[in-house]
Amino acid sequence: METIYALAIGVLTGSGVWLLLRPRTFQVIVGLSLLSYAVNLFIFGMGRLLIGGAPIIETLSKADPALYDDPVPQALVLTAIVIGFATTALFLVVLLASRGLTGNDHVDGSGPEA
């Protein structure tokens, strides 16, 4: 499973980086969202992978850290997902404004095709 998980992060990162380097604003926004999946998975992975150990404690006697998945990366990723939505929205609006002002959708407002 670790192999698949790592490969998934790799593929998402690769696709995201490729899109980040593209000249069209829409490509960059899709690239950012792919890259944020990769980063979220990476942060989540820092707590290691555990199946069937959701950090929900039923009784006090069961409050043993070994039984549960690490909750700290989960809390970090949860806020990251919400913030990610907000920044995507902001980027989209800036993108649209730039498109309206410059008349094209190049990341620099104008430039060579690629």
Binding site: T3, A6, I9, T13, G14, S15, V17, W18, G45
Partner: peptide, 21 residues
């Protein structure tokens, strides 16, 4: 850019794998 993307992707994959194990 493709080369860079592949390097970045495999780097992240290798890094994740070595942390996860």
């Amino acid at each position: 850019d493709l080369g860079l993307a592949i390097i970045a992707g495999s780097g992240m994959a290798a890094l994740s794998y070595s942390v996860l194990t």
